[in-house]
């Protein structure tokens, strides 16, 4: 998880001897602390590795949803929406061992952490293991630029996307880091057909879930994502060929 932030403009413009600048610096540092605290909190609530976490207990049926922290119910609602949006390809309820919302939680946590910075930073990016959300501009009049990793080579990029406006989150799912791990619906076989799937959109929680579902679908969900307002996608086929939906922001800068 990495975090990049840019100071609010007024902070940068202020004289360093100005008391308000110092106050802003302190506020920004506090915001970073809050962002990290949010991530810790989410981890404690949603961890499926810690046996005593609320979600672990929920999965074992030891507690009901009403006894879990309220954010669990909200995340499950988001999971339902993402499941519907993906045409069922993203399904946290389709797993053995109980509901597992972690396919959405990472992006959701990143968005929460980013929100903590909004008041005190002019711009920020959070990179949650290759799933990325931003706000603002990295430098004045610049856009965030995010490379999309070539699934066949860790040190190569397929392309670069620019993030700005409504395109402020990008998530990629692929089998290349862990080997095939997403199961094809109904067959219990590893999903085939795609090396990777990338989704860009206004919310990282949804983008993350949709990328997972798109990979699981073997590409069948691409048309469905194309129909979701604000979201676009890129898939890498087994032979390395690429397909995108209309509007995938691989290029938005005018040719120089």
């Amino acid at each position: 998880m990495s975090l990049a932030i840019r100071e609010a403009a007024e902070t940068a413009a202020a004289e360093t001897t100005d008391g308000s600048a110092a106050a802003s610096e302190e506020a920004l540092a506090d915001a970073v602390e809050r962002a990290l605290a949010v991530l810790h909190h989410v981890d404690q609530v949603f961890s499926t590795w810690q046996p005593d976490s609320p979600v672990s207990r929920l999965r074992r049926g030891e507690i009901g949803l009403d006894a879990a922290p309220p954010e669990v119910a909200w995340v499950l609602e988001l999971c339902r929406r993402a499941r519907d949006a993906s045409g069922g390809w993203f399904d946290p309820w389709g797993l053995p061992g109980g509901v597992d919302p972690t396919g959405l939680v990472k992006g959701w946590a990143a968005e929460l952490a980013l929100a903590e910075l909004r008041g005190d930073a002019a711009a920020a990016m959070i990179n949650a293991g290759g799933d990325i959300a931003v706000f603002g501009e990295p430098q004045p009049d610049q856009q965030w630029r995010v490379g999309i990793r070539d699934p066949l080579a860790a040190d190569r990029l397929l392309t670069v996307v620019t993030l700005g406006g409504h395109d402020r989150a990008v998530a990629t799912s692929g089998a290349y880091e862990r080997g095939p791990h997403v199961l094809e619906p109904g067959t219990s076989e590893p999903a085939q057909g795609l090396l990777a799937a990338t989704v860009v959109g206004p919310d990282l929680a949804f983008a993350d879930a949709l990328a997972t579902g798109l990979l699981a679908s073997g590409g069948k969900a691409l048309a469905r994502i194309a129909g979701l307002r604000g979201y676009s996608a890129l898939v890498v086929e087994q032979d390395g060929s690429l397909r995108t939906t209309l509007g995938f922001p691989a290029v938005v800068e005018a040719a120089a």
Binding site: T48, M125, G129, R149
Partner: peptide, 12 residues
């Protein structure tokens, strides 16, 4: 380029 998007250890 500020970041690279790619698959990592997600989910569980």
């Amino acid at each position: 380029i500020q970041a690279v998007s790619g698959a990592t250890y997600t989910s569980q």
